[in-house]
Each structure stands twice: as structure tokens, then as C-alpha cells.
Amino acid sequence: MAEAASFYIFSGLMLLAALSVVSNRRPIYSVLSLLVVMFCLAALFVMLGAYFIAALQILLYAGAVLVLFLFVVMLLNLSPEALSRTRIFTLRGAGTLAALFLFVCLARILASVGEPPTGEARGTVEAVGRELFSAYLLPFELTSFIILAAIIGAVTLAKREPSK
């Protein structure tokens, strides 16, 4: 009972926050609303017993990604007038249509799914670690080369040319 109640509380809060992300005129409020969404999502993961994933959710999204968003918003520092100039009516209409289409698709897809499978919690540190270093060893190790390429790229693209 308590579980169901907290599920609905967090889900409802999350939906409200998500609505506020897209409806707010000031980008900074949108980012802060997104923060609420991420925390609610983490709470849902905790309720599923996936503590590790919940922690990652907060560390990565709330901690790293959103801070990056905040930096961008603050560095650009756009005034509401500058933003409203880009809001063309047709663009808004197209966005609404696309959102409606996506909503119908998702609703049909989700309606076709049966009961979700239930099982033992798989999102603990131990479970994730075991999977990562056994079944998913190869993709895990290959990821390090993606990161290597990204680091090398960031350094070479940002490095100053040696002065001649």
C-alpha cells in the first residue's frame, strides 16, 4: 500500500516537473525542473531495489549532465525576449503535432505490453559488477576505447597551436 502510494506520488511529481520543463519560458527553470525529474526517476529505481542505478542516475544526470546544462544556460544568458523571437507559430504547431503523434504511438505500444516481468533485484552494486565483468566483459572493455577516442579528440580539438 505504502509502496503504491509512493509510486504514484513520485510518478505524479515527475510528470508535473516534466511538463514544467517544456512549458517554462526561462531556460534556467526548465533545467531545474529537469533536476526534479531526475530525482523522481532515481526514487523509482530505489523502489525497484536498484540502489546502484539510482545512485548512478543522480551522479551522472543530476551531477554531471545538468550542471553542464546550467553552465550553457548561464554562459549564453539569453533574455526571454530573445527566446520568444524564435517561437514561430508554425514551429509550435509542428511541435504539438509531433508530440501528439509520439504520444499516440507510445500509448499503443505500451498498451500492447503485458505485465512487466518481476524478479530479484538486479540493480545492486554486486549484480551490476558481476554482469559487467562476466557476460558484458567485451562491450565493457571496448567502451574504454570509445572514451580514449573522445579524450584524444577533445584534447586535439581544444589544444592551442604552438606559437611560431
Binding site: L142, I146, G153, L157
Partner: peptide
């Protein structure tokens, strides 16, 4: 890696390895 995939995860990793390198090289 992409020539030898047998799992959707490997498909994703192989593609990202390829395209990450290409993103950087395109802006070189």
C-alpha cells in the same frame, strides 16, 4: 567489431567507436 556483432549491445558499441572517431576527424 561491427563485422562480427552477435548482440545489439555490440552493434551500439561498434557504431559508437566508428562514429566518435569520425565526429572528431570531420572537425579536424
Amino acid at each position: 567489431v561491427l563485422a562480427s556483432i552477435y548482440d545489439l549491445l555490440m552493434l551500439f558499441i561498434g557504431l559508437e567507436l566508428l562514429t566518435f572517431s569520425l565526429y572528431i576527424m570531420a572537425a579536424y
